[in-house]
Computed example of a mutant assay.
Amino acid sequence: MPAVFLLGPTAAGKSALALAIAARLPCEIVSVDSGQVYRGLDIGTAKPDAAARAAVAHHLVDIRDPDQPYSAGEFRQDALALIAQIEARGRVPLLVGGTFLYFRALERGLATLPAADPALRLAIEQEAATRGWPALHAELARVDPVAAARIAPADRQRISRGLEVYRLSGQALSVWQAQAASAANPPAVRLILAPPSRPALYAAVDARFDAMLAAGLVAEVAALRATGYDRELPALRAVGYRQVWSHLCGETDYRAMVEAGKTASRQYAKRQLTWLRGDPHGHWLDPAGADVLDRVCALIETGAA
């Protein structure tokens, strides 16, 4: 059986389904979650508890401290090695999560782009201050229409990077990315778990945030804050952690923190759904479907592409 990719928006029920699959089939779970790699970020990342990790082998969980970076490139390298090791043991690699940048890095590879040039980046920002970002987006469309078609005219960071790469190398960013995409991709069954209606997903998102607060999310963030970590660390800018940290600093009251956390979580889920709808190969599954586990296991056992 090939590897299995189980993707879906936050709060869709991926972890519970993964454990149910592993109870039926000889799987090991590889986390595809940019938050679960960090020690101490447990409640807010919905990290599998000790019982789940004792029942089924989990990989790429608790492998970094919050102030230690972990990149998509490192994930790709680690995940490819784990897939090979798990398959060598005669088991099925079950890659589960909602960090789609990691999935994309695994499937398409990563371009070895020219290093950032602070002076050029500053020059581009100064141009934008004078001409406006839409004008720079139009310039990007002339030199790299493929990349520009994927980038909104107001997306400053990606417009800047696209122009920076082109000006440094004379080669379009999309060309660099296409070269990376030629890397060998692991064959996989792609499963997408998502409620059929957006209101149902948003209700699940809100309920999960309430459950995280009840489980001690505020105390978890307080402990991270007491350790002396910088609140601007990427790990601590994650949805939920950012809002609770702001509350602990006295910048918002509890009620405002709860609403901000839920709103940010719903927005994140919406972005994830938008990403997933562009996937032409995934098998879409309703987490509330009575036969979802039987259907998933049949897809895995037949190696459905």
Rank of each mutant, 00 (worst) to 15 (best):
P2L: 07
V4T: 11
V4K: 09
A18H: 08
L19F: 03
L19I: 15
A20S: 14
A22M: 08
A22P: 04
A23S: 15
A23R: 15
P26Y: 06
E28R: 11
I29R: 04
I29F: 04
V32Q: 10
G35M: 08
G40D: 10
D42C: 12
I43A: 12
G44Y: 00
D49A: 13
D62A: 13
I63N: 12
D67Q: 12
A79K: 03
A81R: 15
V96Q: 04
G98A: 15
T99G: 07
F103W: 01
F103H: 11
R104F: 04
R108E: 03
R108I: 03
R121D: 13
I124Y: 02
R131F: 06
W133L: 14
W133A: 00
P134G: 07
A138L: 05
A152V: 02
A154P: 01
I159H: 03
G162N: 09
R167H: 01
L168H: 00
S169K: 00
W176S: 00
Q177V: 08
Q179D: 08
N185V: 10
V189A: 05
R190V: 14
A204N: 07
A204S: 13
R208A: 13
A211D: 11
M212C: 09
L213F: 05
A214R: 12
L217N: 03
R225C: 01
R225D: 02
A226F: 02
T227Q: 15
R231D: 00
A235R: 04
A238D: 01
V239A: 06
G240V: 00
Y241C: 07
Q243D: 03
E251W: 06
T252K: 01
R255P: 04
A256N: 02
V258P: 03
G261I: 05
R266L: 01
Y268I: 05
R271N: 14
T274D: 15
H283N: 13
W284V: 12
L285T: 11
P287F: 08
A288F: 05
A290T: 13
A290F: 04
A290N: 11
D294Q: 14
L299M: 11
T302E: 14
A305L: 15
